Computed example of a mutant assay.
Amino acid sequence: MKKVLCFGELLLRLSPVLNGDWLRKHNTPIFPGGAELNVAMALSRWNLKVKYITALPDHYLSHEVLAHLQQQGIDTSGIVFSGRRIGTYYLPIGQDLRHTDVIYDREHSAFSEIKTGMINWDELFDQVGWFHFSAICPALNENVAEVCEEALQVAAKKGIRISLDLNYRAKLWQYGKNPVDIMHRLLPHCHLIMGNIWSANTLAGIPVDANIHQGANQDTYLDHAAKTATAIKQAYKNCETVALTYRFEKGEGIDYFGTLHLANGDYCSPLFSTPHVLDRVGSGDCFMAGLIYGIYNEHRPHHVISFAAAAAFGKLQEYGDATYQTIAEVESLLKAYEYYI
């Protein structure tokens, strides 16, 4: 089995318990993460061969983190050692990365300073069948966007399948470029594009109904998802598969479902609902991992989207950035929603 290669910035997330607890108790949880690493962690746990590529400073803290990833079965042999800093961010547990409370500290990190020519993509793509990255990478600066483009060109020449998560982080797109202009250079290479109807609008220029929430029901959202998927495929001819998520806040809880759009039809997961969420971070990454896992193993389309959505929903009840759910646990959750494999 060929490997899945995930490329992105490794981050350390600091999650202080507010109202002064982190000061009084001298204790703040730290979670290793980053969108693409979260995908790699899930895929390795689900028995796919995974390689992870990032840039880190060559010091003891980096090597501690890499030893942890290696223990999870992730190939870190291609890591680039450069720069002086590991990127960090601050987010209280329970908040979402799109929330205004997120504080990024990623400027001048090792990953943010990578440039074209620093990574030997031709060598790294040996024995790789799938390449995954996210829109967070090109959001950092134009140099990183150019590195993404460099990687995509090599992957395309080698016939490697490419997936992209259209995750939009407004606080990161601060270098004076229109996100759509940057993403238009990257999207044409992608075979699987995942996101939601709003990120597809912001990052890919796909039309969105600004009034969709007025009197909407699930059928309304499913109809819009199908239209968005069709528009993405028409705009980017290499795109074979589109997956979209819907996540609605309900007080302290969430309603969640996903859609999958292929040449042979549109598919929808069960509607998952919970009155309480432990941690919102990493749910979308878990969904992305579920898609890759299902498609890589050639599962039936309805099972692909249902497994991905169940995994994402299950992640909402775990602390930290990456999931530790097993395949059996995800499938057990599906059965609880009367979906039988």
Rank of each mutant, 00 (worst) to 15 (best):
G215W: 04
E240Y: 00
T230N: 10
Y246S: 12
K237T: 14
A231G: 03
L244F: 06
D219W: 09
A231Q: 05
I232C: 02
A226D: 12
T230A: 10
A229T: 08
N238T: 09
L244R: 09
Y221V: 07
T241G: 09
T241L: 15
N238M: 07
A216G: 02
E249F: 02
T228C: 15
P207F: 08
V208R: 04
A226S: 08
T230K: 14
R247A: 05
Y221K: 01
F248V: 08
T228R: 02
Y246F: 08
G215F: 05
T230D: 13
I206D: 07
Q234F: 00
L203E: 04
T245I: 01
E240H: 13
K227N: 09
N211Q: 11
N238H: 09
D219L: 13
H224P: 01
Q218A: 04
L222K: 15
L203I: 03
I206E: 07
A226V: 04
A243E: 00
D209P: 03
Q234M: 08
V242F: 03
T245L: 02
E240V: 07
I212F: 08
Y246T: 05
Y246E: 05
A225W: 06
K233T: 04
A229P: 01
Y221P: 01
H224F: 12
A204Y: 14
D209W: 10
Q234E: 07
A229I: 08
Y246I: 06
A204W: 12
K233G: 01
L244K: 07
A216E: 12
T220R: 10
Y236V: 07
K233E: 04
Q218H: 02
R247V: 00
Q234S: 03
P207S: 10
G205A: 05
D209T: 14
T228K: 01
F248C: 08
T230I: 06
Q234P: 00
I212V: 14
T228E: 02
K250W: 00
H213Q: 11
L244S: 13
C239K: 09
I206C: 03
A231R: 10
C239N: 14
D223L: 14
L244A: 04
D223G: 15
K250I: 04
T245G: 12
A225S: 14
D209R: 13
R247Y: 01
A210T: 14
V208N: 00
